[in-house]
Nucleic acid binder design. Structure first.
Lengths: 239, 239
DNA sequence: CGCCCCATTGAAGGGTTTCAATTATCGTGG
DNA sequence: CCACGATAATTGAAACCCTTCAATGGGGCG
């Protein structure tokens, strides 16, 4: 069990293949020693490097091993619109199948390692292997569900509820990948959080100090410590 | 102006099989005369009837032939959270594959006809027919993309931009299904629109009169007439 | 060590909500 | 077909929340 929780060298956590979203794909292939036919393992992207840009051909999916990414659009006034963050174990690019091009820019928020899954080879596997087909169906279906939940969280919640929801969702996402701890290091800036939540950086900052004053968490720069998880959940739901 | 609004006699528009999102599934089967093996055609649901409730088993997908649906969650305080509206040609339920249960309540906003696709039989087809498999991949992928776009629209736009975006998106969705007209009959109430957009019913009302004063559209109850499409697009983008 | 970027904090302004009252529309039954 | 009640939509005024503008403080990296 310990090796599941093994940490990356420094700032961000890695995920074991067992707890990765494409474990059902990789683990049988690891055993058969033919994983390389579908994916490149542990490709490194330094902080701030772009993995994709809007409009480029869609030929790879990315699965995060360690680090973090942000996905965003640039509008015609050069304004950035962040649509999501990706953490270890997450798969990136499922929304590109219909257009066959990359719909968003994807940038490494910190030094990041990803496994790159070649689209074409993956689709061949889907034809021959129903487990992998079902895995992809489930991943896409989960993505749809998650985005609907994000919509619920953001369209009707007040600023402090949104931020509490965001922090709690990071906590649960890390937990699902084997990193259960009240300590988190945020990989994104206040500006990124604000952009994603539709709030200004000043509001984010003020709410962090408010949550701190209420004894719910401590926020020292990028380091978050959740002091009272139930209180955080209540704050996320406006109670 | 009176006659413009009276011109729309019918309650809601239907979509032809050619322009429906699952046309690639149905049309070959219609020709082979074995469509009934997968779906029930034109099932009727009266206004306000529930098609699904949260937690019930997921055994059918719905494709709208005529009418309109809303999809919503009820939280523990009995408050409704609308996550989307479905129009003729749309497919409903792609987010349920992973949980294998219906994640939301779905209610008919007006008298509605749907084609019901049986999940199990559909998945059998997916195994044997790559066209249908690709169709489902594309539909799910499109769903993911669309929800991300909705996120962009709602997290960073002001109230009037949100409503303009919403009206314009209804226009484009109807257009794609063959109903190209500046006249629309809204199937949802102001309260539903407000709920979905994260705004109050009063704000929705005020913005409708503002858009009307600016000569962008006329809004007489549920009847919308888009007088200036470019101005609507500009309003949607805060210009 | 100093610089730059990021984060924090304060005060004023604006946009949206809330509360309240009025008007319009729809469905129903006489 | 009209009258009626119930529901939905509009409008106004005050309160509140978040943004904007401005200035200060702090942390990371050369």
């Amino acid at each position: 069990m310990e090796n599941i929780h093994r940490k990356l060298t420094s700032k961000s956590y890695s995920v074991s293949c067992e707890l990765c979203s494409i474990g059902p794909l990789c683990i049988p292939m690891l055993i058969n020693n033919n994983l390389e036919s579908v994916l490149n393992r542990r490709v490194f992207y330094a902080k701030d490097r772009l993995l994709t840009t809007q409009g480029m051909p869609f030929d790879k999916l990315y699965v995060i091993h360690a680090g973090a990414l942000k996905s965003y659009a640039i509008d015609d006034e050069q304004i950035e619109h962040i649509v999501g963050f990706y953490l270890p174990g997450d798969i990136v690019g499922l929304g590109n199948f219909s257009s066959n091009q990359c719909n968003y820019n994807i940038k490494a928020l910190v030094d990041t390692q990803v496994c790159e899954v070649r689209r074409e080879e993956l689709m061949e596997l889907v034809s021959s292997n129903t487990d992998i087909r079902d895995m992809l169906f489930n991943l896409m279906s989960t993505d749809i569900f998650n985005y609907k939940q994000v919509l619920i969280n953001f369209s009707q919640k007040k600023a402090d509820e949104r931020l509490a929801t965001f922090i709690y969702s990071l906590y649960t996402r890390y937990s699902k990948r084997g990193h259960v701890s009240p300590n988190m290091k945020l990989s994104m800036s206040r500006a990124d959080i604000g952009n994603f939540l539709g709030l200004t950086i000043e509001t984010i900052s003020r709410i962090f100090t408010k949550l701190q004053d209420e004894g719910i968490l401590t926020a020292k720069g990028k380091y978050i410590y959740i002091k009272n998880l139930n209180a955080l959940i209540n704050a996320a739901n406006g109670k």
